[in-house]
Amino acid sequence: MNNEHGKIRARLREGNISVRVIMRHPMETGRRKHPATEAPIPRHFIHQVVCEHNGKPVMTLDWGWGISANPYLAFEILAGAPGDTVSVRWTDDRQKTASLETTIA
């Protein structure tokens, strides 16, 4: 599934679900300056990510601002089947949340 928050792809590989996600987010470190105005760009980053399989959390991540902009995440769920759902939701340090979900073909 693609939406304004990013992209998720999940497919079965030898009985497991291989998941790849791109989250749309600037992941600002707080150390950069605006190129024209020199004004500091405030820190702004995704800090928590929850990965779910059929609605149950299977992995959680805590991130800092050292994760690249528009974060990429790949992981593998053990044992999956067609029709299963995989979702990834995240919260940033301004308490904004977003999520992506897909169903295994």
């Binding site: 150390r31 299977v58 992995m59 800092g64 050292g66 994760i67 990429y72 995440l73 992981f75």
Partner: peptide
């Protein structure tokens, strides 16, 4: 973690038995 970043900790992952303990990310 990275030993040369101003803030060394990059990411933490908490696994359950339902996932393989393999994670890919991109870091600065």
């Amino acid at each position: 973690l990275s030993d040369e970043n101003p803030f060394p900790l990059l990411a933490l992952a908490h696994f359950t038995p339902a996932v393989a303990a393999t994670v890919s990310v991109r870091v600065k």
